[in-house]
Design a protein around this nucleic acid. Structure first.
Lengths: 207, 207
DNA sequence: GGATTTTTGTAGTGACCACTAAAGAAATAA
DNA sequence: TTATTTCTTTAGTGGTCACTACAAAAATCC
């Protein structure tokens, strides 16, 4: 007996929508118009549900957005984790990460990165959203940092490299790529930035 | 007889506010809360005027914002122009530009860059604001590109350097710095990104 | 079948949004 | 002084915001 079949055995009227599909639609809207720029009416239209269903399922707009942030970040996180396991050298690992960003921003109509976009508008850490965004950014930068430190142990990152500074450099370039992708909508500009960024990364880990 | 004295000789009730001071206050509000996030009520409170005065002077919220964008961009443009005249080498010129960004984002409470912030929310070129932002970005990138081309003629940028790619690289890092400054509010992170960025720039123009 | 539980759709809530009509106030012109 | 012009202030406009009270609908439990 699956979980879904167990779920069906409970009392009350069953839900008319799929939670994940609803999150997916909400994600698209927030990516396009941002947190402030997306109204509940727009969300309910896109999700195919009525306001009471949205509030019943997700609490309020802010809580829904935070759920969407996790839902958005999870695949990226998994992909980076996969790259870490798959690739051996530090250079190949970061090449794959730069390529991940390039692929993400250059196929289809790019709307940038929801995390980066949101950090512009909800930059106050005192808010739930601000704290969540800060946590995601810190986790990402820390992941890059740890991989560079590992590279030092493995010997393919030079001993005198400032790994903290370099992780912030990579993080900054990835953020810049997201901005350029959304603001300029030029795949060439994104590609140039990331390729030049990786080229310099190759040099920087060697000295 | 000055222009202001001539202005005083016209009919009608004189204005109770200074146009530039009003723009300055509007700039602060838009920098803090963005275009969508700043209401007319917030603007009029900060500017010390009532809505009819705002609409009489600036047209509407969108036109005011576009004026603020120009007002915001002008000093940066002048400063870059001054650097171009002052510095001789390409390296010293770009060092000064990276430092300009560093100084801007690391003194006081940084709110990032109004141009970059706005390009997240008003990224559609079909709007007046989107077109203005695109124009400013293109002008800035073009300025950097031309200076790199000049460097090739002067001989302090290697002949085989892809100047277009490099200008996009610099532009991307400056955008990234603005994002980090606003989102992370860490002066160290901004400094690391810009210093590492300039360090790699030094290498990249030599080969 | 009737009671209970949960979700649904309808139809709103007060608050705030960008913006403005209208009249008073302050200057010049005659 | 009176008329004209321009700006200011007051007091709103309809529209949209996030959010919700309420009752019908659809399931299970007894």
């Amino acid at each position: 007996m699956t979980t879904k079949e167990i779920k069906k055995k409970c009392k009350g009227r069953p839900k008319c929508f799929d939670r994940q599909e609803a999150l997916e639609k909400a994600k698209i809207m927030f990516c396009l118009y941002g947190y402030q720029g997306t109204s509940i009416a727009q969300l309910t239209d896109a999700m195919g549900i009525k306001p009471p269903s949205l509030y019943g399922e997700f609490g309020d707009k802010e809580k829904l957005f935070i759920e969407v942030l996790d839902y958005y970040y999870a695949p990226y996180k998994e992909e980076v984790s996969r790259i870490f396991k798959e690739k051996n050298s530090t250079e190949a690992t970061f090449k794959a990460i730069f390529n991940l960003s390039k692929g993400f921003h250059t196929q289809g109509i790019s709307v940038g990165c929801l995390i980066v976009n949101s950090s512009i508008n909800s930059y106050d850490e005192d808010t739930l959203i601000g704290a969540k965004l800060k946590a995601i950014h810190d986790e990402n930068e820390s992941t890059l940092y740890k991989r560079l430190e590992q590279g030092k142990k493995d010997g393919d990152v030079a001993a005198d490299v400032n790994t903290k500074r370099l992780s912030r450099y990579v993080s900054g370039i990835l953020a810049g790529a997201a901005i350029i992708a959304r603001g300029q909508k030029s795949t060439d500009a994104v590609t140039d930035l990331l390729e030049q960024g990786f080229e310099s990364f190759q040099i920087l880990i060697k000295a």
